[in-house]
């Protein structure tokens, strides 16, 4: 279920943790997962461990790490490429220190397969 999943380095980078969220079966299947797992790469035998449950099964989630070390997760869709009007407006914020995922304001528009979003250079300044 790794196809169309999203993975990102958690902040701060020196903690050496990588998260993987969402994803689905290979090809254009409708199946997707809400798994949210984290691997600690400082561990001599690193393994992905469940970290939180994403509120919905999802593919193509966009992840942006913010200046406060939280990662904002937004968009994507339940089905393959947003099929059957399954775009997600759901937006969450993951706190890597507490390991909690909190729902925040939803997006106005769905944005399936917009996989890259950037943190503006001016954010937080």
């Amino acid at each position: 279920m790794n196809e169309t999943s999203t993975s990102f380095l958690l902040a701060p980078a020196q903690d050496q943790k990588v998260a993987i969220v969402g994803g689905g079966a290979g090809g254009d299947g409708e199946e997707s997962t809400s798994r949210f797992s984290v691997v600690d790469l400082t561990d001599p035998d690193p393994r992905y461990e469940p970290a939180a449950d994403y509120p919905s099964p999802a593919r193509y989630i966009s992840a942006v790490t913010l200046p406060d070390d939280h990662t904002l997760l937004t968009g994507g869709s339940v089905g393959y490429r947003g099929n059957h009007q399954s775009d997600l407006h759901l937006t969450t914020s993951y706190d890597p220190q507490t390991g909690t995922l909190a729902e925040v304001a939803p997006t106005r528009s769905g944005a399936t397969t917009t996989r890259r979003r950037c943190c503006c250079p001016t954010a937080g300044s």
């Binding site: 790794n2 196809e3 169309t4 999943s5 380095l9 079966a25 090809g27």
Partner: peptide, 21 residues
């Protein structure tokens, strides 16, 4: 991803059922 020791990590794409790192 680039790791602190100079290594990078890849979390692979469409390889069903195998979380490949």
């Amino acid at each position: 991803f680039r790791l602190a020791d100079g290594h990078r990590l890849s979390t692979a794409g469409p390889t069903p059922a195998t979380a490949r790192t």
